[in-house]
């Protein structure tokens, strides 16, 4: 127990402080509350064994986020989780609040992106990472990030979302 306290010093505090933000990212990456919970908890459990090293690296949140992105891609590759069916094809006619309609539309649109495209959108337009930072997190070149972003936005545009031009 003492070894655990020493080894995982600060882990609980980190989760308490950054858990909500990581949860939000997980939800955007999956579009499903259950999957988002699985994803963020899996990422945290994968981080635990390396906690001291991760802390020494200076940015544990980025590490967990990267684990989430990789894990989400691995799920997709294994086809264990396919969330498309969980999201309605179009905004539900019984949704009266405009925001709810927008959220559902965005969920539906994101669900039609590939995991890589979705990750690029979340990292660039929600996490506000630069092309370079996104490339590092995804383990690809900046050029790939740019082209993936372009493709993803084009796809979202066809789904009638109000999206920006690629920079």
């Amino acid at each position: 127990m003492y070894e655990d306290m020493e080894r995982f010093l600060g882990f609980r505090e980190f989760v308490r402080a950054r858990g909500p933000a990581l949860s939000r990212t997980a939800f955007l990456l999956t579009g499903d509350h259950q999957l988002a919970e699985d994803l963020v908890q899996t990422a945290l459990a994968r981080t635990v064994p390396h906690w001291r090293r991760v802390v020494a690296g200076g940015d544990p949140e980025a590490y967990v986020r990267q684990v989430m992105v990789n894990e989400r891609t691995a799920w997709w590759r294994r086809r264990r989780y396919d969330v498309i069916a969980l999201v309605p094809d179009a905004p539900s006619p019984i949704d009266e609040a405009g925001q709810s309609i927008e959220r559902l539309a965005l969920l539906a649109a994101l669900a039609r992106l590939s995991p890589r495209q979705r990750a690029v959108i979340v990292l660039r337009f929600y996490e506000d990472l630069s092309v370079q930072e996104t490339a590092e997190m995804l383990g690809c070149s900046p050029g790939t990030v740019k082209s993936t972003t372009s493709d993803a936005l084009a796809r979202l545009r066809t789904l009638t979302l109000d999206v920006p031009e690629v920079r």
Binding site: R12, P20, H33, Q41, V163
Partner: peptide
Amino acid sequence: MLRVQLQMLADTAPDYTDAERALGAYR
């Protein structure tokens, strides 16, 4: 606009994290 939409969507997510569960899973 996309940023705002993503933020609105993200705000619907509760905090799923549980440090004890993660530590328990690791152990």
